[in-house]
Amino acid sequence: MKAVAALVLAGCVLGPATAFASWFVDGDLGIVHETNVGLAQKARDVKSDSALGAGVSGGYAFQLDDRNVLSLAGDLAGSGYAELPGLSNLAAGATTAFRSKFGFGGSAPWLRLFASGARLEYDNDVRDGWRYRLGAGGGMRFGERWDVRLDYVFEERFADRRRGGGRLPGDVFDTTAHAYSARVDFLSSEALTLFSSYTFRDGDVVSTTRRNAEILAASSALTADRAFGPDFVAYKIDATVHVLTFGMSIALGSQASLNVAYERQIGLGRGGLDYFNDVFRGGVLVSF
């Protein structure tokens, strides 16, 4: 994290003084509704909720040459939950990315590598901690309408507190996961882009339920989760998750867009701990 912060600080200092540096700012404001926020398996434990979220990311991009760009950015994002305020959170961090293009024009394939780190602060502090991501992706444009990209992201989270419960350790929110995704964008018209993606995620999942023997047997850590209520427990389970996303993006001029998306998460946990979560998103993006 310190290394990333140092890079961003260097970018903020060097960027304005460097002729080939270009500043950029991305912002978003939106709502999200999840039908199973706690990723619970049993119907009696499933809780849905909606959140209002906003984020801003900005920094400098350095054009190293005609094909390669290095960017350094600071990130700030927050979400406020309606029914489960303990999940409301603020994330502050930094991202550095390297983008390379193999050829000329909009159809040339590209490759992007990134590293990010963020401090996570929740209203209910059991989830507080650090999140790190490393990723690689590539893609290209086919014809005038189709964009295809493949991505890999490794994510690791470290929680501040590790209060256990009985025989199991309490490092529930110390999680590791690998995610592989494929995405297709279709430019339906000048203003409308349709997109769909599939993500395969393998790793730790935190599932919050009332106490039950099945999940206890299959979990590797647990801790009380007051964000969901006094009798809820967060369990760390090993799961593969399939995520299907469908969305549309309407351009509002050249630097903003209105976006809606639906996401179906199918979690297949070890020991038959399966769950489903439907996520609906809507919001506005701006980019300068």
């Binding site: 991305d26 983008r99 351009a251 976006n259």
Partner: peptide, 18 residues
Amino acid sequence: KEDLRPRRAPVPGQRGYR
């Protein structure tokens, strides 16, 4: 015909410098 050049407006999941 429509103007189908690569889109400048942001699309979800494609943040960062472009």
